[in-house]
């Protein structure tokens, strides 16, 4: 061809490996319409051919709450910190549900999108992010349910619910949950593309995680300091406790715990994005 020196203005360069921090976020931004389409697909396709549509998203937290009220409140008579059981359980379930669905969704990214990934190129980060966002919509629906129940107890029932200004932290708490779920999910999905051993642990980990997070019990009922340390080492614990403290006025909220969770989230997210980015390029060969 021509003078090869003039030819160095390439738009796309493909090499065997990318640099560690070459995340190509610019390109992710360029594909933002795809993100919207994925979110739409995930959210809309769930309730196609149903009459009640998104109303079905209410059913799951309601049933779980009732079950908790019967098993843990009624039979095991566990403390709810003097709060009405419905509000107490729901406040934990809603946020935990978001975490667990987003986490299990993103940790399946490679396995469940192998078909599309094998045919077309787009920034792979779009897919897990879209899962986290579409689960956020589900969360919004369930959060509304919580608010309705909460307001009912706040205004029409005599209780000692004490909302405070930490309610303003709600968006931060949601973002932290999202970041944590995304980061952990990216790590798990990267680990399971070639060797699927981890997959068998995942369901168990999520179930275990729920018991290791103060959802069915208030954190301040734990008396053994070792167990308490273990529970609070779980980054979701502080998020749930802060959420509960903000809306209900009970629980042991601490800035230290919250900052710990935030730092944990940042580290996990960065590690997740980097490992995902490394695996993503050659994932099709080993899936």
């Amino acid at each position: 061809m021509q003078d090869s020196l003039q030819n160095e203005d390439w738009d796309i360069e493909i090499y065997p490996k990318s640099k560690l921090l070459d995340l190509n976020l610019k390109e992710v931004w360029r594909y933002r319409d795809l993100l919207k389409q994925f979110v739409r697909r995930d959210f809309v396709s769930v309730y196609k051919q149903t009459v009640f549509g998104p109303l079905w998203f209410f059913v799951q937290p309601i049933l779980t709450t009732i079950m908790f009220m019967v098993v843990f409140g009624g039979i095991a008579k566990m403390s709810t910190d003097g709060m009405p059981q419905a509000v107490f359980y729901l406040s934990g379930i809603v946020l935990w549900n978001y975490f667990s669905t987003a986490f299990s969704g993103t940790s399946n990214t490679f396995a469940s999108n192998a078909g599309v990934f094998g045919k077309v190129y787009f920034p792979r980060l779009i897919t897990p992010v879209s899962i986290v966002v579409s689960k956020l919509l589900t969360f919004a629906v369930q959060f509304t349910l919580f608010i309705v129940v909460y307001l009912y107890y706040l205004f029409f029932v005599e209780t000692n619910i004490l909302p405070n200004s930490l309610i303003l932290l709600t968006p931060v708490l949601i973002l932290m949950t999202a970041g944590l779920a995304l980061g952990l999910g990216l790590i798990i999905t990267s680990l399971t593309t070639k060797y699927r051993d981890f997959k068998f642990l995942l369901g168990f980990i999520i179930q275990l995680g729920m018991y290791a997070t103060p959802i069915i019990y208030p954190a301040n009922t734990i008396t053994d300091p070792k167990i308490k340390l273990a529970i609070m080492a779980n980054p979701m614990s502080s998020i749930i406790e802060t959420f509960r403290f903000a809306y209900l006025g009970v629980g042991n909220f601490s800035w230290v715990g919250l900052f710990y969770s935030f730092g944990f989230m940042v580290v996990v997210l960065i590690t997740g994005v980097i490992t995902y980015n490394r695996v993503e390029k050659k994932f099709m060969d080993t899936v």
């Binding site: 796309i12 360069e13 493909i14 190129y121």
Partner: peptide, 21 residues
């Protein structure tokens, strides 16, 4: 390789403009 579904083991591909496959 050209459509970036998977990465090469060695070597490179360079292109001008968007690639759709």
């Amino acid at each position: 390789l050209l459509s970036r579904v998977t990465a090469p083991t060695t070597g490179s591909i360079k292109a001008r403009g968007r690639i759709a496959s």
